[in-house]
Design a protein around this nucleic acid. Sequence first.
DNA 1: TATGAATGAGCGTTCATTCAT
DNA 2: TATGAATGAACGCTCATTCAT
Lengths: 183, 183, 183, 183
Amino acid sequence: MRHQSMENIANAALRLFGEQGYHSTSIAQIALAARVSKGLLYNYFESKEALLHFIILHAVEVGEALLEQALAQNSSPQAQLRAFTEGTLSLLQKDPIFWRLLTALAFQQDILEGIMPQLMEKQGTAMAKIIAVFQQLGVNKPEEEAMYFSAVMDGIALQFVQMPDGYPLDRMKERVLKPYLDQ
Amino acid sequence: MRHQSMENIANAALRLFGEQGYHSTSIAQIALAARVSKGLLYNYFESKEALLHFIILHAVEVGEALLEQALAQNSSPQAQLRAFTEGTLSLLQKDPIFWRLLTALAFQQDILEGIMPQLMEKQGTAMAKIIAVFQQLGVNKPEEEAMYFSAVMDGIALQFVQMPDGYPLDRMKERVLKPYLDQ
Amino acid sequence: MRHQSMENIANAALRLFGEQGYHSTSIAQIALAARVSKGLLYNYFESKEALLHFIILHAVEVGEALLEQALAQNSSPQAQLRAFTEGTLSLLQKDPIFWRLLTALAFQQDILEGIMPQLMEKQGTAMAKIIAVFQQLGVNKPEEEAMYFSAVMDGIALQFVQMPDGYPLDRMKERVLKPYLDQ
Amino acid sequence: MRHQSMENIANAALRLFGEQGYHSTSIAQIALAARVSKGLLYNYFESKEALLHFIILHAVEVGEALLEQALAQNSSPQAQLRAFTEGTLSLLQKDPIFWRLLTALAFQQDILEGIMPQLMEKQGTAMAKIIAVFQQLGVNKPEEEAMYFSAVMDGIALQFVQMPDGYPLDRMKERVLKPYLDQ
DNA sequence: TATGAATGAGCGTTCATTCAT
DNA sequence: TATGAATGAACGCTCATTCAT
């Protein structure tokens, strides 16, 4: 971040996008919340869409780092899978609003068009790593299992961000891991 | 449906909302696609939001009917679960754009506010029926398992609507059912 | 009135224009209140404006008739003035909403443009008759006095229609007449 | 007034509302006449209605100041009454279009709803002061006389704004005052 | 005589974006 | 670096009016 103002803007935008949705949040609101002028915002970000893309890419990088770390800090595939799962769900728990935003955005192609290629590429890379983990786990069809696993994680995230209070995240986590870590 | 025009409007709106998102679709576009005037649209729907709600509720009712049928036309819980799973995924396959719209909407509270209560109620009713199926299946913690199951289904739907071409929906289906139907 | 429907329409329009104002009343509202279709309304009246003009001219004719009668049924100018004054104020009292409409319209040239000439002519005719009464009363400058008198009547009407409840219409009436009828 | 533009807007709106009526004047027309964009208008005024209210309250304050001054700068009730009467009529003469607007508005409740309370309160305060003047004049029933006086003033204003050219405003003024100031 | 589905111009309003300062 | 006055295109929506039936 080049500047405090830039960080303020990104944070305010993140919060407001998450709370109200992208389209329902105006530049004026963001500038007000960030305590800067609308003009300044355009010094840092080319457009409203560029601001959004900046936020999204930041988030995705957090997820990448998490996966990276889970793999690096553990040697057995079991431990890696557990670390990644726990890390992901704990991110969710720490900032549900943010992940709600991301989930919501995942379905609004009108907004994502500009960064879809980058996102797809990053997702492909991550998927490859997860497949490798399942391979080492020795499951039957590692690709299919990785896909199933990531569907489950997505589903849990989806349900959790919809209803963060009272969702049994921990029990779900154990339920996800059980088939792989049992025994 | 009072008239052909009303159906045209609802269909055009569904397609455009699904393709471009709700906010990025204008009334003018819908009217154009439905080959009616903007004014006529307001003879049938009170507002853009009301038009959306109409579409959503229609969709939810289709889902309800599916569950109903799966339960009614099968007696064993195994057959019921399979029928419901297959029915759901076949709906997805038949009209991915539509279900993409629905999934996207699930995260845009600014839009849903008006019908959230109705949706929550319907969802609660459906969940109760699914829990009952798992109870009859004799699984350990039926509530938790139902939740897990619905997370998996949501995750698969989510991934499928994101990438309908090439997604191995059938293999995922078998993967979902296996733990419950395997001997 | 050619027809019951026509009367229904005119009455409904009168009431709604009076209650809500001309611009804030829609043709749809009038048709609904008159229990006819919008289409039928256009069988009887060329346009919304024509409907308004019809109502206004009707009202003005009522006023003309009142003045006529006050003059015809009384021979002394004192009795004529009293009869006209009392008649006018009793009309006000009988249907304040209607006269409020008329008063309001008197200031909306955008609406009146089409019938201004007719109204001016009728008003000139009436004024001439009132001047004649003051002449017979032997006041100093009958033209000026007639103008003053009509200003007073307008002012009272204006205040009364603004606040029909509790306005001391009778006492005002006596106050108006006193200078002319005393002794 | 924060800016020249704001003044331009208010002046243009005043003129157009007065000439064409509130409903028949569009925001586009006002912006055009004020030589600003439609958008800018909304930087200064929340809505078309708020713009109107701003104009009205400005006008009413002018009237209040006039009464205040008439009372403060004269000690005898005769002089106060004359000063107020002359001041009022000279305001009328200076800007008939503006007062025509105000008079027209007095009858359009659909528009006034938002500021009626404020207006009523101001009017009550003014009326109390006028009653006090009549009390000091020693007339028979001061309240009633004040009401009559204000009806006369309203009636004259009404007729004058309807037909500013050729209306004998001065002679009417003298006619109004005569009963009170004559010896 | 009577209907109401259908039209389309025009409305008030919003908001991402620009630019002189 | 920072402002906020100013723009203008686009939006959702209304409504007087028409016309096939």
